[in-house]
């Protein structure tokens, strides 16, 4: 049985340029009521080596990861069973390395593709030419704290939508790019990932991302399903085109003490197919809606809109797609 768990998918320690020790990072994640973190230090796995030799340090499940911090883009690599050299990747040769990562069971995600780049932050903007987008497993569509306010997240969301419209199956994640915890608590989104029996591990998270079982939210949890005939299809699944019945549940009661102080309120649920809004429903509080859909080949996802951080009509959550054959 698939259960969705809340994760922070992009974090750093003092093994690269973060301020956290691995223990402090795990403790901070626990305080945010997360079910796991992907520890993705820049160009090193040494924090993971530390956690293996100090298992008492990780108070929550830690997904093995690294952030390829290249000169031409930053890329999150999770679960690779051996190290692939990040230093040789050139703007036009990335596909070769993506295949190598996949050959050692790693999954790859593009980090903050539209962050301000060189010379302010070399490589922070995605400049790689990807020739086969089937080699990309996910895109960090939301980056940084307070993600609803960032211009580059809108660009990343549009990039992800364009790729879905071209027929690629790519999951979405959020990543705080968490380097330290300041004196003021900031709003951070969570990536919910659907894992077998609720077990969070490097392998289960990689499997779930490959299967597209993710959604991103600034607060409320989401359950989005489509029924066709006797079958029910969930996020990441594929169904045949035609008439079907959709169901969405939005629940603002989960982890509310973590995000409730940031003025997040769902006002509207949209169902978006192949980039077009096909249904819009007003929402308030816990929302449970059933609706009819007629789907053409492509994809369909749910999106939440409402108030966040003092602004209105903001996108405050979205699922990875259910695909339509």
């Amino acid at each position: 049985m698939i259960q969705y768990k809340a994760l922070e998918m992009h974090s750093h320690t003092l093994h690269s340029d973060g301020n956290f020790t691995p223990e402090e990072l795990c403790r901070a994640a626990k305080q945010l009521q997360l079910d796991g973190i992907a520890l993705t230090d820049h160009n090193t796995l040494s924090a993971h080596a530390y956690l293996i030799s100090h298992p008492e340090a990780s108070r929550i499940p830690v997904v093995t990861g690294i952030e390829w911090t290249t000169f031409f883009g930053h890329m999150l690599v999770l679960g690779a069973e051996s190290s692939i050299d990040w230093r040789d990747a050139m703007p036009d040769t990335l596909d070769h390395y993506l295949k190598e990562i996949r050959a050692v069971n790693g999954v790859t995600g593009i980090a903050h593709p539209f962050e301000i780049g060189s010379p302010l932050c070399t490589g922070c903007h995605w400049d790689f030419a990807v020739h086969d987008w089937n080699l990309i497993d996910y895109i960090e569509v939301w980056s940084k704290a307070a993600p609803t306010t960032q211009f580059d997240n809108i660009q990343a969301f549009d990039m992800w939508t364009r790729l879905l419209n071209q027929g690629y199956k790519i999951a979405a994640t959020a990543g705080r790019d968490w380097h330290w915890e300041g004196p003021t608590r900031l709003h951070s989104a969570a990536t919910y990932i659907g894992v077998e029996n609720g077990e969070v591990s490097t392998r289960s998270i990689c499997d779930a991302i490959r299967a597209g079982r993710t959604y991103v939210t600034a607060g409320p949890v989401i359950d989005f399903q489509i029924s066709s005939g006797q079958q029910t299809y969930a996020i990441g699944d594929s169904l045949h085109s035609g008439s079907c019945r959709g169901r969405i549940i939005v629940d603002p009661t989960v982890r509310q003490e973590i995000w409730g102080d940031f003025g997040i309120k769902v006002r509207e649920v949209r169902i978006v197919a192949n980039g077009d809004v096909v249904l819009s429903m007003p929402a308030e509080g816990t929302q449970e809606s059933d609706f009819d859909l007629k789907l053409r080949p492509g994809w369909v996802r749910a999106e939440l809109y409402g108030d966040a951080l003092g602004e209105t009509e903001k996108r405050i959550g979205f699922t990875s797609p259910i695909y339509v054959e």
């Binding site: 093994h15 690269s16 340029d17 820049h42 160009n43 090193t44 796995l45 190290s83 230093r87």
Partner: peptide, 17 residues
């Protein structure tokens, strides 16, 4: 930044400012 290899083994990087 400085990264380090022994023979063909990648040992890591000190990605700090």
């Amino acid at each position: 930044t400085l990264s380090l290899d022994y023979e063909k083994e990648y040992l890591g990087c000190a990605h700090r400012h």
